[in-house]
Each structure stands twice: as C-alpha cells, then as structure tokens.
Write a protein that binds this DNA or RNA. Structure first.
Length: 886
RNA sequence: GCGAGAGUGGCGGAACUGGUAGACGCGCUGGACUUAGGAUCCAGUGGCUAAACGCUGUGGGGGUUCGACUCCCCCCUCUCGCACCA
C-alpha cells in the first residue's frame, strides 16, 4: 500500500513517465523472446526446405538415426534427450559438408492403441494417427532437422505390405515356419510373448503380470540360422558399446559340448541329452526330463506311475516359469517308472521328470551327475539317488557319502573305465571321440538363442499373409495379392481380445491354390518385426515398386550412427541384425550389419518424493518438505527414471512453453554426457536459459560495432584481445574434438561458455576498443554463435542474422581453427619441489627446457624449499612443469 | 554367483596419452544497481587455519613413480545386465 503511493508519487511527472516508457520499449525490442525467435526460424527452415536431402554420389553420405518413437500421445523427456543428441550430430555433420540423412517416423502398431481404444471408445487407428499428428507438432516445435518427406508409419499398408512380402519370402526359404509349442502367454496382453519379451518371469510391458505357459500353434522366424554369424560379427562392431555386445553374446549363448544318446530299457527309443561335461558321463546315475518334453507322456503310458507323473507335470507347468526355474526354488521331480542305459557304464539308471530341467535349452533332457553338478547333487540327495565320483581333485580324496556339495573343478578321472587317470580336460575330447566311434553321441555346439516367435493374437498389427485350406493346408497369400489389409471397420472386443477371429468378413476367403473355401490366419505379427527394417525403408520411403530401392538403400545403408535407449540392447538390435542378414540373403540389401556405430543414451531421472500415507507425490504436493494432504514429512527416494507412476515426470511441453526449445535442448546436453543418466534439475534449466540470455545481450548490446567491424582482422592488438583471439581458436578445436570423438556436448558447451565469458571480459571497457579490437571481438562472438548452432539452432540463426548474415547457419561450413593462433607467446610453468606445487612462473614460449630449468632452480620460492638439501634430480615436462627432487 | 560400469565439493559434472584436482553450470555467501528483486552485474566459494602457492583432500588400504582421480594389488559401496543354460 505504502510502496504503491510512493511509486505513483514518484512517477507522477509526465516527463519521467514518458522517459521510462521509452526505456521499457527499447528494452522490449532487444529482449530475448524464445518463442518468437523459434517460430520464426522453424517457419523459415520449412519454407526453404532446408532439411530435405537427396542421394548425391559426389558427397560423402552420413546416415544418422535415432530410434523412432511409439506414438503414445506426447513426447517425453527421454525422446527430447535422444532426439536432441541426434540433432546436434546431424547438424554438425551437415555443417562439415556431409550429405546427412536424418529421418523420423512412427513405430505405430502395438498394444497401447488397443487399450486406449477400449478405454476411450475410439479406434486404434484414430488414436494412433491423432497421436502421430500431436507428437509431430511437438518434434517440429523442438526444431529437429528431420527430412519429413521420408516420414513413415508402420501401421500404414504401404509399409506393412512389404513386411508381408518379406514374410512370404522367408517362408519360401524356410526362414519362417509354423510349429506347435509351449509359448509364453501374457493374460493382460491376451497374447504370446517371445522369450526376449519375458523379464524375470513377467511380461516386459506389464511388470505385475506373470507369464504362463500355453500350448499353441505359432509362427517363427529362424533367427537361429544366423546365430553363429551374429555372434562372430560382434567382434566386427567396434563402434558399439562393449556392454551391448556382451548382452548380445550372452543372449546368443554359445556353448561347446556333446549330445549323448541313452538307450531306453524295454524300448527301441533312445534319449538324447546335451552336456558340456561329457568328461563326467561315467558318473551319470540318473536322467531327467523337462516336464514339457513330449517323450515323457509316451513312455509312461500304462505304467502304475502314469497318473502321478501327469499330475506332477501339470502342476509344474502351471507354475510361473521364472519361479519354477529360479535358483532358490527347491529342485523337485518324480520317478517316471522307466529306466535307460548309461551307454558307457552299461548300467541301468532311472529316468525322472524334474522341474529344474529346461525344455528350451539343449535337448530338454539331461544326464544327471550328482557328484559333479550342484543341481544334480541336490536332487539326488533329496530322492536318495546313487552318487559316484568320477573326478578326483589333486591333493584330496572325495568320498560320495561325505560330500556336502558337488565338486565342479578339475582333476583326474576315476571310475571311468579306459579313461581312468586321464585329466578331465583331456577326457573331454577323448570321451567325445569314443562316443562317436561307438555311435553313442558326438560333439556339438549349442545356442541358448531360440527362434523368434512372431504370432500375436492381436488386432493392431500386421496380418500374417497365410491362408488355411482344408484341402491344400497352409497356403501363403500370393505376392500379387498383397497387402492383406488390416480392416479398420472393426472395434476392439471389450475384454481386449482381437476381433479378427470373430469377423467372417476378414477370415473367410478362398484358397489361392484350389479356389475352395479357406480361412485366413487371424494372428498378426510381433511389432518388433516392423522396427527390424524401418531404417532401410527411410532410404526410399516413397518407393512403390518393391520394399526397397536397391540403389538408394545402397547409397545410405548402413546407418553410420544409431542413437537410442539401452533398453533395446537385446531385442530390437538383435532382431534388426537378423533382418538385415535375411534381407541381404534375399537380395534386398548389400549390407550385413545395419548399424556401424551405436550410442546408447542414459535415462532421464528425477528425485522421487513420497509421503508415508499418500505414496508418491507430485512436486506441487510438497510444501516445505511436508505432504500438503497430511503434513507428514516427505521422504526423498533418490533419483529414478522418470515415470508417471512415480510422479516424477517433467513434461517437455511445459518447459518449451516457459523457456523455449533451445533452452530445453541446451540443458539436456549440458547436464551430463549422453551415455550417462541425466539428473533432472529445474534450477539447471534456468541456468541454461540465463546463458542464452547472456549471449543474446552480448550480441545485441554490441550489434552496431560488431556489424561494422571487419571479420578476421589480423592486426596487432592488446594483450587481452590477443588472449581472446587465442581462446577463440582453442574453443573451435575443443568443441570440434568433443563432438567428433566422443559426443561430449557438455564439455563442448562449457568451453563456449568460457569463450563468451572471456569476450565479455574483453569488452568491459568497450569505449577504449578501436577498430581492429572489434574485429577480434567479432571473430569471438561469431565463432561462439556458429559453434553453438547445432545445440541451439534458433537463437543462433537469429543472432547470425543480427550480425548481418543472411543464410541459416546449417548451410555455413563448420569453422576450422588456425594452428598459428593457438601458439602462446608466454607459458605458465608450474614449479614443484618433490611433487608439490611451490611456485608458478610465466616464461616466453620460445624458451627451451634447459633454460626453464635454470630459471626454476633460481626461483626464490623454490630455493627456499630446497633449503640446505641437495638437488637429486630435476624433471622438466615440455614447457609445462618443473619438478625438483631433493 | 557371473559379467560390465561407476564411486571426485552442498549438487550436476570437468581433468582425453600419469604432470596446477574441482573447468563449466547450479546452489550458497557478500557487494553493486534498485521503491523492490526470484532480473542483471561484480567478488568469493573442497576442508582445516586469523591468513598464506601452510596442512589436508578424488570410497578405504597398500604399491609403482620425481609426480597418481588416472597404472597395479586387496577391500567396501552403488548401478546395470545375466542368472538352476546341464
């Protein structure tokens, strides 16, 4: 109240009011208004078609790709970070003269569309296309330099028709096949999951949903055909992070061992087991089957144990797969009532069915050697099965009755007939050879990788182009009848199931072979199929004569730099590598590896806050460290990946509205190097905004002098300006190297900040600067603007224009530094005594090491620390440091 | 358990092949301008100390070296991936 009267009284005079108004008006004109600047340049870039790119054999190509998004509704911070990193590289490479392909599209099939359709009474297609349009607007608002002419959506028939063609050709080549199997079933998704999509026994997208086993007919892609090659080629991907390669190698899981055949008693059948320890075969005292194994049901038929065994199998299969095979789960099994013969000892040994044996791995049956395998040991002890030591360690004597755990180390063979006395390592080979000559088995290589099950009982996916005919059986849809269009007139079923099996207008068809009545396949493909080749299609997304225009694809592929989240380290990347090989074999591609360099960016994290009674809290629900609902003090839960459920998300749109896209881009890059997790910090965003305001003022406050000054004046200047000149070129060097060698944008930005700080210092007394001085300042300012332009392209283009240029910085060549400008006429040399800094001196740069040493030894502070002691040694480091050892 | 990565101020992070530890930013402190300041500018800011290029300091302990955040050995903690794979 009082201050208001004061205010009005003070400004009551007319002249004062007018004066202040003029001032405000002038201030407004030069104020940095991000939205205005950004919209202006986005419109201009678009009008000029600046981001469009064509194949040009005279230029070196650079294919930069970021993982395309699922159109979930709006972009999140993870997208912003991923795409900002990509955009900086794309713009940088372009300024370096490369022909850069930088496309964007939509991974548009998938479950959330179906769920949203049910929830909101809409159609998955409408929901998806609405989301695409909303997210596209947001991506454009961020100023990313995509060539939108190449945009694709995988749910469009013009995309998935080619995928259906690939499927047919894979079917012809035996790379796609159908089989009845035990599949992972997610009740929430109402569909099958691939092994890779099961995490800890739960659905990869429903962490609260346990995956169960169901028997079902499914289509598979024979990814195992390329297992060995994909494993070997891990060595040829030096541009991939080591940990991703390790995960891929582990997933393929190659192991060397042997298949051994155990003949059954009272039957002509033999049981095959896979083992990596054929050296212990003489110690195999029983045999175990996985409950799923089809042989079990046949061999127990009519036995007194039959019903008991079947009950055990059914009970075991109902259990959660993860729990059943978890390390801490007790080993359980049941005697089948049948026996087989250990082919090397000739002994009759019992056959069990056991919960811990995996049907998916090896042959689904194992020989059990309780003395030398911990699992078998536990099982044998529980069921009172015999033990026989066949490997004796050096310097100890194992006795079966006294053993408390299996001995899994090396040693000499005992109880092993002709192999007694041999080291178990040698016996690996010898026993394998022996098995082979006797016809009992052979050496083999086993992979953990299974074929890729792609059948999904879903609506919102690409139909599998197959028809079932009573007469002709399974018949592929002829290529000229593609696409099998996913009809859009159906609604989702209320329980979430696919309408396709219930819609005769879809599944009723005629057989392409005999013309008779036939039924279409109603399963659709796993959406990972679409993302396994979208990067190829970007090269020619308008091509309509086939899936890929070989000429254009060959120009662009492989992707030079792929950028995305670590969460795709196995699934998407492995499938893409498989598809690339298959398409190469089918003649569609000339490359065998899709991605030369891979950058996996870290997650965007933020501190979570929670209340003991109200759970996770949004920031606005916390006041002074207390929950606004109940007043309890809030618990800080550490920094975790942003997620809606933890209420720690930051909506990029809010930030764009408040600070502008450039600030958001800048903070994402400045907060941490890309491969590390990014810790969100609202104050840090303000810091980024502040810096942009500083550089804005630097240019606007000095616009007159800067525009008038000569570019690159080389005249002799004052001390402070020669430092600035050097700093300018040092910064060019630093920024170029940081981007080029390691994508460390945080340090690149930091060094431009230093340059700006230095420039501000140099013009502190701007009235004393003369013409040549201003040309040095101009060089510094322009360099800062150019170097920063890949990071914050809008403000830089605006400043560039203010500085008197016409073109967008995207078309300006990346600057190179002048090595001569880096040379310093003086150098700071650190003087140490016994490794401790005791003094610093400035010496002329031309001075030799010997002279520097002399000066150092004469330095009063150094003399003081040497004192009475004698100098033992003096180390001189190339004009940088002198260490005197006493 | 196995594999990979990481531990640096109050915080995010620098220090690239061993050579001034803490660039840059945030925060904080003091000051300037201002009716006001959550705007802007200036100065300071690892700890200890009255102060210093004095001591101390990069998870802990040892080692190599004239010199170690950096290399080697042992230990601790955290993150991620894999995990009964026969």
């Amino acid at each position: 109240m009082e201050s208001w009267t004061l205010y009005t009284r003070r400004f009551s005079g007319r002249r004062e009011v007018e004066k202040s108004l003029r001032k405000v008006k002038a201030m407004k004109q030069s104020r940095y208004e991000p939205e205005k600047v950004e919209l202006k340049w986005q419109a201009r870039w678009e009008a000029q078609g600046l981001f469009k790119v064509n194949e040009d054999s005279s230029k070196e190509k650079y294919y930069l790709l970021e993982m395309f998004p699922y159109p979930s509704g709006k972009i999140h911070m993870g997208h912003v970070r991923n795409y900002t990193i990509g955009d900086v590289v794309a713009r940088y490479k372009r300024m370096q003269g490369k022909n850069v392909l930088h496309p964007m599209g939509w991974d548009a099939f998938g479950l959330p569309a179906e769920n949203a359709a049910i929830e909101h009474g809409t159609h998955p297609a409408k929901w998806t296309y609405d989301n695409i349009s909303a997210m596209k607007t947001q991506l454009k608002r961020m100023g990313f330099s995509y060539d939108w002419d190449r945009e694709l959506a995988t749910c469009d028939p013009s995309y998935y028709r080619w995928e259906q063609l690939f499927f047919l050709q894979m079917y012809e080549r035996g790379l796609a096949y159908k089989k009845r199997t035990h599949v992972n079933w997610c009740e929430k998704c109402q569909t099958v999951l691939a092994n890779e999509q099961v995490e800890d026994g739960r659905c990869w997208r429903h962490s609260d949903q346990e995956v169960t086993i169901k028997e079902m007919d499914s289509w598979f892609l024979r990814i195992t055909h390329y297992a060995e090659e994909m494993l070997e080629h891990c060595e040829r991907l030096p541009g991939w992070p080591e940990r991703v390669l390790t995960m891929q190698k582990n997933w393929i899981g190659k192991s060397y061992g042997a298949v051994i055949r155990f003949p059954m008693v009272d039957s002509h059948e033999t049981i095959e087991v896979f083992t990596t320890r054929q050296d212990t075969v003489f110690g195999a005292t029983f045999l175990c089957f996985a409950p799923e194994h089809p042989m079990v049901k046949d061999m127990i038929k009519g036995l007194p144990q039959e019903s008991e065994v079947i009950a055990f199998i059914e009970r075991t299969l109902k259990m959660d797969r993860f729990l059943r095979t978890a390390e801490f789960t007790e080993k359980e099994g049941i005697f089948s009532g049948r026996y087989c013969i250990n082919p090397l000892t000739g002994e009759k040994i019992p056959i069990f069915v056991a919960n811990f044996v995996l049907f998916d791995y090896g042959t689904g049956a194992i020989m059990a050697v309780p003395t030398h395998d911990q699992r078998d040991f536990e099982f044998a002890r529980k069921y009172g099965l015999p033990l026989r030591v066949v490997i004796q360690p050096e310097g100890a004597l194992l006795k079966e009755a006294a053993m408390e755990e299996a001995y899994v180390g090396d040693g000499k063979l005992v109880n092993s007939g002709p192999f007694n006395g041999m080291s178990n390592r040698e016996a690996m080979e010898s026993i394998a050879d022996y098995l082979k000559t006797k016809g009992h088995g052979c050496k083999t290589i086993n992979y953990r990788l299974r074929d890729w099950g792609i059948s999904r009982q879903r609506y919102w996916g690409a139909p599998i182009p197959i028809v079932y005919c009573n007469k002709c059986g399974t018949v592929p849809v002829p290529a000229d009848q593609l696409p099998v269009v996913l009809p859009l007139q159906f609604q989702m079923r209320p329980n979430g199931g696919s309408p396709l099996p219930f819609e005769p207008s879809f599944y009723e068809t005629s057989c392409p072979g005999c013309g008779g009545k036939a039924r279409r396949e109603t399963d659709t493909m796993d959406t990972f199929v679409e993302s396994s080749w979208y990067f190829d299609r970007y090269a020619c997304s308008d091509y309509s004569h086939g899936p890929l225009d070989l000429e254009r694809v060959s120009y662009w592929m492989p992707v030079d730099q792929y950028i995305g989240g670590i969460e795709h380290a196995i699934l998407h990347l492995l499938y893409s590598r498989f598809f690339t090989r298959a398409l190469n074999d089918m003649g569609y591609l000339k490359v065998r590896e899709p991605f030369t360099n891979l950058l996996t960016q870290g997650m965007v994290c933020k501190e979570i806050e929670s209340c003991p009674t109200h759970g996770y809290l949004y920031p606005h629900e916390v006041k002074d460290g207390r929950c606004v609902k109940c007043g309890s003090s809030v618990i800080l839960g550490g920094s975790l990946k942003m997620s809606k459920s933890k209420k720690n998300v930051v909506d990029p749109q809010d930030l764009i509205d408040k600070y502008g896209a450039d600030t958001v881009r800048m903070f994402c890059l400045f907060a941490s190097p890309p491969e590390r997790d990014l810790e969100w910090n609202d104050k840090g965003v303000e810091g980024a905004s502040r810096f942009l305001n500083r550089i804005w003022r630097l240019v606007l406050d000095n616009a007159g002098q800067l525009v008038r000054a000569d570019s690159r004046g080389g005249v002799q200047v004052s001390e402070v300006l020669s430092v600035l000149h050097r700093k300018t070129h040092q910064t060019i060097k630093k920024v170029s190297e940081d981007i080029e060698n390691r994508f460390h944008f945080n340090t690149a930005i930091a060094s431009v900040m230093e340059l700006v700080n230095e420039t501000n210092k140099a013009i502190e007394n701007r009235n004393s600067l003369d013409e040549p001085d201003w040309s040095i300042v101009k060089e510094a300012v322009e360099t800062a603007v150019v170097l920063l332009s890949p990071v914050v392209p809008h403000i830089c283009d605006e400043l560039w224009e203010i500085l008197g240029h016409r073109e967008s910085l995207l078309t300006v060549p990346w600057p190179s530094y002048d090595p001569a400008a880096l040379v310093e006429e003086k150098r700071l040399v650190v003087l140490q005594v016994n490794g401790r800094v005791r003094s610093r001196i400035e010496v002329p740069a031309l001075l030799g090491d010997d002279e520097i040493k002399e000066i150092a030894l004469a330095d009063p502070r150094i003399r003081q620390f040497i004192g009475e002691k004698s100098v033992k040694k003096t180390v001189v480091v190339q004009k940088k440091l002198v260490n005197v050892v006493v």
